[in-house]
Design a protein around this nucleic acid. Structure first.
Lengths: 191, 191
DNA sequence: ATATCATTTCAGTAACTACTGAAAGGACAC
DNA sequence: GTGTCCTTTCAGTAGTTACTGAAATGATAT
């Protein structure tokens, strides 16, 4: 609840709007926490997204009850991810922030970054491991030992999975701007 | 590096195998950490998966250098997720654990659980918010205010996204056992 | 130049999560 | 019953991450 609301300076409609928004913001924050982004950052993003209007640092501080330092750092992190943007208003000193409006675009930005940061290194490691265990490195007899073969099979299974997943990600990423919804329609029909 | 290795009681091949496995285990642990599962649990799972052989609590403790308590609790958590299984060996007291072998099946188990725990509550909240802001709750005039309409649009956008995502998840989940790879092939061809 | 307002940085701290090790709790054998 | 072997639990602690608030930095106006 904001200061304004506490002082009774809001209309009934405004209060209800705030209440609904806060509900969404809190849930989104909880969800973010289990997806590797921290709660506060997820809440800030939810605030920008749900209001669909530019917010400044003080708006964020007041609305979410956090310090200036925290707001500043978290806003920057969200800008780095690319899911909110800085925005200068003519004749105003302070900076505003707004969320991307297209959820599909946000998703594909996040997907691209996580693929790069997390999947690619794993794939790289798997290849490295397979190479360490191939005939050229171990010799023919050693490479045929059961334990070695089992591990090689597991590496292969994981590699296949990650390669396919990667391709799907790439499709999403590549098609984000030109109407991702279409891609998804095709996808669902195909099943 | 295990005790055995330190004492020089391993063959060259065994050492190389362990080294490759450890590489994979560590990377998998790092990745898990950014996906909401903790590093140790991810490492234990990686160990079970990559060796493709039943491991007991002591194996886990020695290989990953963790305490008995930690091993016990983490193994249980992985069993709860359903991606490793308990296994009794005839005539042995101690319990063993093994990973599911099919990566697709593991993925769909995790997807199903996360959908239930994380997406479903958000969808529920979005519907609740939309209801709070519809004409029936606010009155016609209030519901037409710009701020209210903007928030309603954003809620709608997010709902659509999550519903489609949910459906895709369900397809994956439903098709896991009967050869998920086929589903994916269809999917990739469709693009 | 100086004043004003906004933003960033960061040392210190609070809050939280993960982990240990020892004690308690089974399960089976004798 | 007692002893042995293994597993689980949990209080206490270590380690990590998130946050604050104040000082430093920057940006614009006068």
């Amino acid at each position: 609840m904001t200061m304004l609301a506490a002082r009774g300076l809001m209309t009934d409609t405004e209060q209800k709007l705030i209440t609904a928004q806060d509900l969404f913001i809190r849930r989104w924050g909880e969800m973010g926490a289990t997806w590797g982004i921290n709660r506060t950052q997820a809440e800030i993003h939810a605030l920008c997204y749900i209001t669909a209007q530019p917010v400044c640092t003080d708006d964020v501080m007041e609305r979410l009850n956090i310090s200036r330092g925290n707001a500043s750092m978290s806003l920057r992190a969200l800008c780095d991810w690319g899911i909110i943007r800085r925005l200068h208003k003519r004749g105003e000193r302070r900076e505003y922030f707004e969320s991307l409006s297209d959820v599909w675009e946000m998703f594909s930005i996040i997907a691209a970054e996580r693929k790069r940061r997390e999947m690619d290194p794993v794939l790289e490691t798997i290849r490295q491991c397979r190479q360490m265990l191939d005939e050229a490195s171990l010799g023919k007899a050693a490479a045929r030992q059961e334990a070695v073969q089992l591990t090689r099979q597991r590496l292969a299974g994981m590699e296949e999975f990650m390669e396919v997943t990667n391709k799907i990600f790439q499709q999403f990423i590549g098609n984000a701007k030109s109407g991702l919804t279409n891609v998804v329609k095709v996808l669902l029909k195909a099943f």
